[in-house]
Structures are given as structure tokens and as C-alpha cells.
């Protein structure tokens, strides 16, 4: 059995981490799946899905250190006119941070509930906001 749902977010900052485990857990509980897995997948190339501890110090560290890996004033090839868009490429740091964070996570479903460690939060990580964002949640199992 497969249940597919979409979560919609309107981010507010250029870079931010938005906890979404609560919404994912609700989709799992609302689905008829009792045993299986849930995949959380972002639909975008400048966002990521991360699993980490929900602490503001860690959120800040993650964003700060990613910013040091990919500084805004770095020398990027993705800073040129894109004919297909008719617009300038201006968000290389967003793409590169998204590459590091990855586009998805997979968690267990047991007895109809999302299984996670006590410290585990699921984050939608925004790296080129503010924008309207969509996350696919796919519950698979029996």
C-alpha cells in the first residue's frame, strides 16, 4: 500500500530550518499503513530535508557552517545568464547547500506510527527563500 501526500510551506527567510516531523507523523497516523516506511522528499533543488536534533544552537551551527562552506561571495560558475530562463543564475549557494543536505529522509513506521529517536527532528531546510515550497510524504507498507 502506498499513500502520497503533499505538505505546503511558505518560507520566510533566505536560509532557515523548519521542523516538519509533526506534520509527517500526522500523515503516517492518518494513513492505513501499520508497518513500513515513510519517505519525506523535497520537490526543489535549493531546499533540503535533514534529520537532526531540534535545538536552536544546532540549527544556527548547521546554517552558519554551511554558509562557510559555500560563502555568498564565492567564485561560482552558476553566476551567468541562463537562456532557458531568460534570467540570471543567482543562487549557487542554495544549490550547493541543498546538495550537502540531500533531498529526502526515510523513517520507520511501526504500529501505524512514525518511529524516531527522541532527539530526531525532520527539517525542511530552506536555502533560497522566501519561497512557496512543497514536500512529498510517501507512506509505504502494509
Amino acid at each position: 500500500m502506498v499513500v502520497i501526500k503533499k505538505l505546503e510551506f511558505f518560507t520566510a527567510k533566505y536560509n532557515e530550518m523548519i521542523p516538519i516531523k509533526k506534520e509527517v507523523a500526522q500523515i503516517v497516523e492518518d494513513s492505513p499503513v501499520k508497518q513500513g516506511i515513510v519517505s519525506v522528499i523535497t520537490n526543489h533543488t535549493t531546499t533540503g530535508i535533514m534529520v537532526n536534533e531540534n535545538l536552536e544552537c544546532l540549527e544556527d551551527d548547521i546554517l552558519t557552517q554551511l554558509g562557510k562552506c559555500f560563502p555568498e561571495d564565492g567564485d561560482y560558475y552558476h553566476a551567468r545568464f541562463l537562456d532557458d530562463y531568460g534570467a540570471m543564475a543567482g543562487n549557487p549557494t542554495g544549490h550547493l547547500k541543498a546538495m550537502v543536505s540531500g533531498n529526502h529522509c526515510v523513517m520507520s513506521v511501526e504500529d501505524g506510527k512514525l518511529v524516531s529517536g527522541s532527539a530526531q527532528e525532520i527539517y525542511l531546510a530552506e536555502f533560497d527563500g522566501p519561497q512557496e515550497r512543497t514536500v512529498s510524504v510517501i507512506v509505504m507498507g502494509e
Binding site: 511558505f10 518560507t11 520566510a12 532557458d84 530562463y85 531568460g86 534570467a87 527563500g129 522566501p130 519561497q131
Partner: peptide
């Protein structure tokens, strides 16, 4: 017409958030 071939429709709230950021 504008040569903005992949630009999606967006609402006024997007502008407001862009302004804040």
C-alpha cells in the same frame, strides 16, 4: 513576451516576504 520563460505566478505575499528579507 518578456522572455522570462520559467517564471511562475506568485502572490503579493511573496513580494512582502522578499521585501522583509
Amino acid at each position: 513576451v518578456l522572455g522570462l520563460y520559467k517564471t511562475e505566478e506568485f502572490g503579493l505575499e511573496q513580494w512582502r516576504r522578499d521585501c522583509q528579507v
